[in-house]
Design a protein around this nucleic acid. Structure first.
Lengths: 211, 211
DNA sequence: TAGATTGTTAATCGATTAACAATC
DNA sequence: TAGATTGTTAATCGATTAACAATC
């Protein structure tokens, strides 16, 4: 059995290909080449073929890829051929935004519970969901077999929340709090920092010599 | 003159070091070693030293780094030693969340205008700012010398908005719409996709062999 | 067969890491 | 001087790209 390590950049690109294929599918296109996909998402054709080659042979030489089939293969690879149930903890502005964000549902992520420690927020309705107290976190996660927890609380509370999510049995955590979380190795963690994106931009601006 | 290309990963790590140093500064610590920084942000000590070495010699052999000085150097490198004026276009849930997000202001990003094409939203107050119509975008950008535009409109409108931002003279665009933007080369672009983060998590979950 | 495009190899390029000389 | 930690080199590792054989 091959246990090739897949670069994370490959996974991110697969996600981009998949989104682009959705658009292409809507236009009713049946076949597509690596070059067209590459142009559509802004990478090289060799990249497209290499990324796909990690997982199998999905195309026909001399012809290209069947759009629907390729899309289906990529969704399988990304494990998006099922629903993932998600909870969001911390219903401030960011948590609210993520709760309303339609992009998650489109990709098979179903938000089934939203939580906040602030009693003043508990009971509010948002996008068809009711904000619940943290005490109910564990029971909801177990009951609805939630796999993923999203943390949008302040950094000072993030570790506590993470511990509760882990105790309740989530497999993965997406953390928006700017802090380093300590988790058992069987839980997947991904940190997102919104403002680092602006900082990369400002650095790049500064390092340009042309303007 | 050296024109070494700096890896983007280095910039992202510098941003992390800087955040960690802020915490350390608050505790009143004066000196710190590459090993401590490395542990604090979860990278290797060699990484910390190498990243810094791209830009100069900021430490003292046998001793370590002065926390305040190092912080100041990193902020210079990231161009955070000044204020950056920012506008946000598209005041849906995500745009609202970013408007309220305190993390930007902390790092020197000052949101000076928020805009929406929807007349029903124009005039609303948010975080001390009033939602303005798109027609006022150009004049505000010029008047307040805005350098960065954040796009949080639907994908179908993103290119139009980007064109307006460019015409008005922004230097950089942070795009949250899931689409490929075409911009002149003198404008820095960075795309952020919120749901790709969840997809990387689900892929990683699927590719674990241990559980 | 001629034209086209994939899948894959090999070469290039770049980033990470270990190790150590420099130096406080 | 002995101990410690940086700055830097060289070795390793991994990812990207170009090129082409395979094949429709």
């Amino acid at each position: 059995m091959k246990t090739l390590k897949i670069p994370e950049a490959t996974i991110i690109r697969l996600s981009m290909y998949s989104r682009y294929l959705s658009q292409v599918e809507e236009r009713g296109v049946e076949m597509i080449s690596s070059g067209e996909i590459a142009e559509g998402v802004g990478v090289s054709p060799a990249h497209v073929r290499k990324d796909l080659a990690y997982f199998g042979e999905f195309g026909t030489r001399g012809v290209g890829y069947n759009v629907g089939e390729l899309q289906s293969h990529i969704l399988n690879i990304l494990r998006l051929n099922r629903e993932w149930r998600v909870v969001i903890v911390g219903i401030g502005y960011l948590g609210s935004a993520l709760t309303m964000y339609r992009g998650f549902r489109e990709r098979g992520f179903d938000i089934v519970g939203i939580f906040d420690a602030d009693a003043a927020k508990v009971g509010r309705e948002l996008s068809g969901l009711t904000v619940r107290p943290l005490e109910e976190l564990e029971s909801i996660i177990r009951e609805k077999q939630v796999g993923i927890g999203i943390i949008t609380v302040p950094a000072t509370e993030a570790q506590q929340v993470a511990d509760k999510l882990v105790a309740a049995g989530v497999s993965a955590i997406l953390n928006f709090a700017p802090c380093v979380l300590t988790l058992p190795p069987h839980v997947e963690l991904r940190n997102v920092d919104l403002s680092v994106n602006l900082e990369v931009l400002t650095f790049n601006l500064g390092s340009r010599r042309k303007f």
